[in-house]
Design a protein around this nucleic acid. Sequence first.
DNA 1: TCTGGGGTCCTAGGACCC
DNA 2: TCTGGGGTCCTAGGACCC
Length: 401
Amino acid sequence: MAEKIRRIAHLDMDAFYASVELLRYPQLKDLPVVIGGGRRALDAATDPDQSERLLHRIPLDEFPRIKDYVGRGVITTATYAARQFGIGSAMGLMKAARLCPQAILLPVDFPEIRRYSRAFKAIITDIAPLMEDRGIDEVYIDFTEVPGGQREGGRVLARLIQKTIFDQTGLSCSIGVAPNKLLAKMASEFNKPKGISIVYEKDLQEKIWPLACRKINGIGPKADEKLQALGISTIGELAQKEVDWLIDHFGQKTGAWLFDAAHGRDSRPIVMESDPVSISRETTFERDLHAVRDKAELGAIFSRLCQQVADDLQRKGYVGKTIGIKLRYDDFKCVTRDLTLAECTGDAQAIRHAAGLCLKRVPLTQRLRLLGVRVASLARPGEGETGPAPAAANVLPDQLF
DNA sequence: TCTGGGGTCCTAGGACCC
DNA sequence: TCTGGGGTCCTAGGACCC
């Protein structure tokens, strides 16, 4: 019997958030639709009175248009029709409105998105149990030992998974199968949407080296800029460099990683379970707020964030001992402060108190656009939890908010 | 009219201990 | 008195990803 070779798949749902909405509103198919934004200006779409009518093929001209949106939201997903206008993920909605004013704008329906996310993942693990969750709309799957996982380099199994997901949910996905996660991730992008791409080790020069370095998961705008400045644009060009040269320019760790990545080497395992490192909540205000003039409003938001983080901790079954805050100023500059307590807590008041101490260590003359609260150094409750904060801690007079 | 929210990982300096 | 390591924890910032 032939030796099995390691086959890793990366599966990415096609325009996931938008596709889920299209299941509900099939009349929007082939139109530019954008998902994103906050609550405001979208009430029409979520108004209970209207949702009745939505089920009965609401006329197109009654859908909210992006040009009517006022706010600070960004795009989560755009349909392929919307992408024709240059609209893309993470783009500000205001900019997207200029590119395609008539695009339909729908808010993210998180419960629905999570429902479909759980559904497609359950379909996958029924077929191939070794799956790594990489977020709401993508996963890695180990094909190596699964029936059909070796046939045609994984294409047979990929087709089965793709078809089963589509038959059971109506959603399409793209799959790349390769010797490791790094290459599988790149392969899944080759034929989007509804694509299947198979990459073998021997395909490195032909299929991977012509690609831009930016296609490597982990090379972002900054690293790409630095590579460009060194005359390196493609993965092939990166692969021509000596490992020592890369280490000189990028440091030991990054240099060695760049070298391996350019040669298609990646030994990271599939990780099926992991504990979170931190749990946080943050919010961007509708308008920039001032620490003094908008003190009451900020204080209320601050307390709410602490309560939400405490609720999240409770629901997920964690406590933590490092409490942190994050501020973004009106010029988009960001600062963080954190404080490690003697013992873990999950209590909203204790979090609020520690976060309040952090806040005092930060300059507050400039207007703020974002405030966040984070709990890290997590543990399971039982050992290390302090419970409610001592009464004295709650009446410290010098709390800012 | 720029630029969300929830994460992970890395680096680097200082404190502190052995 | 000066001169060293190394290891771990804490903190701040930043790159990157979905």
